[in-house]
Structure formats: C-alpha cells, structure tokens
C-alpha cells in the first residue's frame, strides 16, 4: 500500500514537471566586472599620460601621409613581398632537396638551413651590404661584367639578406608540410602512373599547403617588421626614411609613431588576408574549415564567441 502511494505521488510530480518550465538564474561573475574595471582604469591612465606627454600629435597626423614616409612604406612593402617570394622559392627548393634520396643534395640543404638559420639576420644583412669587399667585381664570362657596388645596392642587399634568411626557415616549414601528407597519397599517385614531379605538384604540395599557409601568414607579418632592419644598411625603407626626417626636425617619437601606425595597418590587412587564404586551402576537409577562426583585434572572434564561429 505504502509503495503504491509513493509511486503515485512520484507520478504526480513527474506530471507537474512536464507541465511547467523553470526560470534559470545564471551564475554571476562579479570578479570579472571588477577586473574589467581595473584594467580599463589603467588603460585610461596610460592614454591620458600619452595625450598630455611631450608628443605633438599634430605632427603625427601631418607626417602620416608625408611623401617621404609613404615612399618609404612602399619600399617596405616591396622588400617584404619580394623577400617572402624569394624565401618561399628557396624554401620549397631546399625542402625538396632535404627529402631527396641523394645524400649530397640532402647535405647541401642541411648546410643552408644550418648557416642561415644559425646566424642573426642583421649580421647577414651587413655581410650582403659589404659583399663588395669580398667580390669587387661580378663577372659572368661573355654575358655580364660590373662593379659589385653598382649591382648590390642597399635595396638588393636587403632583399638577398631577408629572402635567403627567410628561405632557411621556410625550408623547415615546407619540409614539415610535405612530411605531414599521408604516404598513401604517394602510393595512389604511383598506381595512376604519376611521375615524382607530378605527384609533388598535383598531390603533395597542395595538401602540404594546409600546414604551410598558416605559418606563411605569420612569416609575412614577421617579415614586414624584420624588414625595418634594412634601415641599418641605409636602405630607404620606412623606418630609415623616418630616421632621416627626425635627424633634421627632432620629432623622434612622433615619426616613430607614424611608422608604428603604418606597420599596424599592414599587419592587420595581412591577418585578414591570411584568414581567407586559409579558408581556401582548407578545401575538402570540413574540420579545417571550422577550426580556423578569424582573429579580430582585441581577441574578438577567437574562442568564446560561438556566434562568430557559427557565422563562418
């Protein structure tokens, strides 16, 4: 009897639960609000300090679009793009050499990476800048002859220094990408009768790209900033141009800020471009597509904003 009664009352309760819905009270996070307020206050202090510091913001605005700065920025972009291109071609070539069955080519590729990854890029830039001390003349018999100082201008020296250095890093990146592709892919290509080169170009490299491209984006951003080292070998990229101006007018911080603004603008554009390229190379793998989330400034769009991820 008692048992029956208990079962009966339980049934009533289940019915009651089915009928009504409950209001859910979210857990409050007062600590987050406090931390947010503290950080905002500190940020406000910092902004205020700079606003009232010895900086002529008007000058920053003026020089932001000055011819000499814009021309320097153009050279910065050009050097970065060309050096990346050189780095990528060298990297792909040496990566394939490192994976070759020939021990000599393997060793040469290893040597390249060892030397150019193992020495500072500033030192390499200085060596290329002063290469005329070693080879006063460049001679290709019957084709070309000239003084090295005329050929290896600061621009060319910067290009060689940055590009060859980048190539050493790219070698490792491309090698990792190629190694990540399943060996079954090569076997499938073999059974279709594809040559080594066809297999590499049509099957392996496109898949390796998925691993390479995200790194490539970071490298491009890094290259844009590292190219400022070319200022040290009197290549008139943006930082060098800014220095030349502030040696005359003394507005050191103002001009450095101008450069900072342009560098930030360029790196921001690059990260947006990286997002779209990654999406393209994620083709055919649904996981890759949903995993690559676009990182907006302030960390928006990363983990913790499911709405944005769904929108992709």
């Amino acid at each position: 009897m008692a048992l029956e009664a208990a079962a009966g009352s339980q049934r009533v309760e289940v019915e009651a639960l089915r009928q009504r819905s409950y209001k859910i009270v979210r857990l409050r996070h007062p600590g987050r609000w406090l931390a947010g307020a503290v950080v905002l206050a500190l940020l406000a202090l910092l902004v205020q300090a700079f606003a009232h510091g010895q900086i002529q913001w008007k000058l920053v605005g003026q020089f932001l679009t000055a011819d000499v700065i814009l021309r320097g920025f153009g050279i910065t972009l050009l050097i970065s793009a060309l050096a990346m291109l050189l780095g990528l071609s060298l990297g792909t070539t040496f990566a394939i050499m490192r994976l070759s069955a020939n021990p000599v080519t393997r060793f040469v590729a290893w040597l390249y990476v060892w030397i150019f990854r193992g020495t500072p890029v500033l030192l390499q830039l200085l060596v290329w800048f002063n290469i005329a001390l070693v080879f006063p003349r460049i001679i290709i018999p019957g084709v070309f002859e000239g003084r090295t100082v005329d050929i290896v201008t600061p621009f060319i020296a910067a290009l060689l220094g940055l590009g060859i250095n980048e190539g050493a890093y790219m070698t490792e990146v491309v090698r990792g990408g190629i190694n990540s592709v399943d060996h079954g892919q090569t076997e499938a290509a073999n059974t279709l009768g594809m040559s080594r080169f066809q297999t590499l170009r049509r099957i392996i490299l496109p898949q390796a790209m998925r691993l390479i491209v995200p790194v490539l984006g970071n490298s491009a951003i890094g290259m844009l900033k590292t190219s400022s080292l070319a200022a040290a070998i009197s290549c008139t990229e943006m930082l060098n141009a800014a220095q030349q101006v502030y040696f005359v007018n003394g507005a050191v911080i103002e001009l450095l800020f101008v450069c900072a603004i342009w560098y930030l603008a360029a790196t921001t554009v690059l990260s947006i471009g990286q997002y779209f390229i990654e999406k393209r190379y994620g083709k055919g793998t649904s996981q890759a597509r949903s995993r690559s989330s676009f990182k907006l400034p302030f960390g928006l769009g990363s983990a913790g904003t499911p709405a944005l991820e769904k929108a992709q």
Binding site: G184, E187, A188, I203, Q207, K283, T285
Partner: peptide, 10 residues
C-alpha cells in the same frame, strides 16, 4: 586501397 587514398583536395 583499404584506406581509399582518395586525394582529399579534389
């Protein structure tokens, strides 16, 4: 092949 080995990017 047992594991198909289709080209995933095509």
């Amino acid at each position: 092949f047992q594991h198909f080995n289709l080209f995933p990017h095509m």
